[in-house]
Amino acid sequence: MARVIATICARGGSKGLPRKNVLPFAGQPLIAHTIAQALACPGIDGVYVSTDDDEIAAVAQAHGARVPYRRPAALASDQAPKIPAIEHLVQHLEGAGARIDVVVDLQPTSPLREPHDIAGALALADQAPLVVSVTEPSHNPYYSLVEVQADGTLALSKSTGAARRQDVPAVWGLNGSIYVWQRAALRQAAGQGFWTVPMRPFAMPRERSVDIDDALDFAMAEWLFQRREAGR
C-alpha cells in the first residue's frame, strides 16, 4: 500500500499579514485548521509541518502535527520557493528511514477546504504525477482579462473572436490549496521547475478557495467560514 504523508509549509515571516499562520481564525490558530483537515483524511498516514519558527512549531505540535526540525534559513526567506522546502522535508524523513510514495502538500492559508476535498484530490493520485486544486476564476483571459499594449490601449489576453462567455474555452485558476505529488514528480519539480511536471486538476468551489494573503482575505475567509458553520 502506498505511503502517503501531508506536508504543511509555514514560515514565520509574512509581510502581507504578519504572523498570519498563527493568528486566531474562528477560534483557533490559522494553521490548526489545515492540520485538522489533514488528520481527518483517512488516506493520509502522517502530517508534517516545515517551519523555521518556534511558535508555529509549538502550535503545530499542540494540534497533532509532527515537526521534525526547524527549516534552514535559506529555505525560509521571502524569495525562497516552496517546492525545495517540501523536498527538503521529504528527504529528511527518508533519511530517517521513512518510505514515502505520495506527498499531499496543503497550504496553511487555505482554511476553507474540507477533508473531503483532500480525499477527492488524493483519489486522483494515480492519474497523473501531480494533482492540483483549482477553481473557476473571476476573470477569463478569453473574455474579460486584458493586457496593456505598446500603445497604451487594452486588448484581451487571449481572443477567439467569441462574443459570449459561454463560447470561450473553460479555464481554471490554481487556488493553491492542495497539491498531490507522486514522489518522483516532487523530486523533478524541485530540480527542474513546477511546470515541467504533467498535472491534472481537482476542482473546488470558489467559496472554499480563498487564499489568505492580507487582512482583507483574512476577513473574507472568516466570514465565509462562519456563514458555512451557521448553515450546518
Rank of each mutant, 00 (worst) to 15 (best):
I178W: 04
S144R: 01
P169E: 13
T160S: 14
W172E: 12
I178N: 06
L174Y: 11
S144C: 14
L122V: 06
E147N: 13
I100R: 11
V168T: 08
G95D: 12
S157Q: 12
L186F: 02
G173D: 10
F194M: 15
D126V: 11
G161P: 06
R187V: 15
N175A: 08
S157P: 00
P108W: 02
A162E: 12
D117F: 00
A155E: 11
L106H: 04
P169C: 06
S133E: 07
G161K: 00
Y143W: 11
N175L: 05
A125T: 01
T153P: 04
L112Y: 07
L122A: 09
V171S: 13
W181C: 10
R113P: 00
A189D: 03
P169T: 08
S138Q: 11
V131N: 03
A170E: 14
S177Y: 00
G95N: 09
V180C: 01
I100E: 13
A170D: 12
H92M: 05
A189G: 04
I178V: 13
L174S: 09
G173S: 12
Q127K: 13
G193K: 02
F194G: 10
D167W: 01
I118A: 07
G120V: 07
A162D: 11
G161W: 04
S177E: 06
L174E: 14
L186N: 06
V180F: 01
T135I: 00
S110F: 03
L112N: 15
V134I: 09
V148N: 03
W172K: 06
V146A: 15
V132G: 08
V134G: 07
Q188G: 02
Y179H: 11
A185L: 02
N140K: 00
A119S: 15
A184N: 05
S177M: 05
P129V: 04
L93W: 02
G120S: 10
P137R: 03
L124F: 01
G152Y: 04
V104H: 05
H92D: 15
D151V: 03
I118R: 03
A162L: 01
Q127W: 07
A125N: 03
L93Q: 08
T109M: 04
Y179W: 09
R187W: 02
H116K: 07
L122E: 08
S133C: 05
S110C: 15
T160D: 08
G97S: 12
